[in-house]
């Protein structure tokens, strides 16, 4: 595991440093996430009485669209500047490359969500101070990051990558999105972990599956 951890952290360090320099990804996703919530809020005529019912759906729609926007860029810089080739000719495993990129995506998405959540809480009128909601958001985002990293690596090699990614991403993540919305609805309603029922374990099972399958598939995707 220590053989994996070192390269993973190096990749994360490099990506965070690059983002810190350019700031183009996180800022644009935060702005996009805000716009999505404002649009949904008005389109669905969200009122205080209906917010417990509507807020989780709006929340996860915004997260999912923001994730696609972010994942679209996950490999672009590496592909354009040759960094991916540099990684592939380095003596590190393909698993380490995948997990490094997935961890970077997870950190970016959690940062974006941390910035957006307080605003969403005010706009959609719900409390974010709930451990069950936090856990649901973390596990859902983990699924987004793992699947998104794999499909981003596939999409970046195609000419129509902006279209390709959502086409691949949403069908595969649908079970996670549905489970996350259901679990969040209960969490916003004030239930504890036990009250979340089968939805949280379902996300855990999908995350575990993705964490096994996606690194394996990635090693074939990046080979020429």
């Amino acid at each position: 595991m220590s053989g994996l951890l070192g390269p993973i952290l190096i990749i994360v360090w490099k990506d965070l440093l690059l983002e810190l320099r350019s700031k183009d990804l996180v800022v644009s996703i935060v702005v996009f996430g805000l716009v999505v919530v404002v649009v949904f809020n008005f389109a669905l005529n969200n009122t205080p009485g209906r917010s417990a019912e509507l807020a989780p759906g709006i929340l996860w729609s915004a997260f999912a669209f923001s994730a696609v926007l972010g994942m679209n860029r996950a490999f672009v810089r590496d592909q354009e500047q040759g960094g991916l080739e540099g990684l592939l000719i380095s003596p590190i495993s393909r698993d380490a490359i995948f997990l490094g990129k997935a961890l970077t995506s997870l950190i970016f998405m959690l940062l974006v969500e941390a910035a957006l959540l307080p605003v969403y809480a005010v706009m959609l009128d719900f409390s974010v101070l709930s451990w069950s909601l936090m856990l649901t958001i973390f596990l859902g985002t983990l699924g987004f990051a793992v699947v998104g990293t794999l499909f981003s690596a596939i999409a970046v090699q195609t000419r129509s990558r902006e279209i390709m990614l959502p086409v691949l991403f949403f069908p595969v993540l649908l079970p996670v999105i549905i489970a996350a919305v259901e679990a969040s609805t209960r969490a916003v309603g004030g239930v504890t972990f036990i009250g979340l029922g089968r939805w949280l374990p379902l996300i855990v099972v999908f995350d575990a599956l993705f964490l096994v399958i996606c690194p394996w598939v990635f090693s074939f995707v990046v080979e020429e």
Binding site: G6, E85, G86, I89
Partner: peptide, 23 residues
């Protein structure tokens, strides 16, 4: 190769530190 495999927004030293740690 034809491409430098270096990141434009990292300094030359940062790029080299990055690769030396990968190796």
């Amino acid at each position: 190769g034809h491409r430098s495999l270096l990141y434009d927004d990292l300094t030359c030293r940062e790029n080299l530190v990055y690769y030396s740690r990968l190796f």
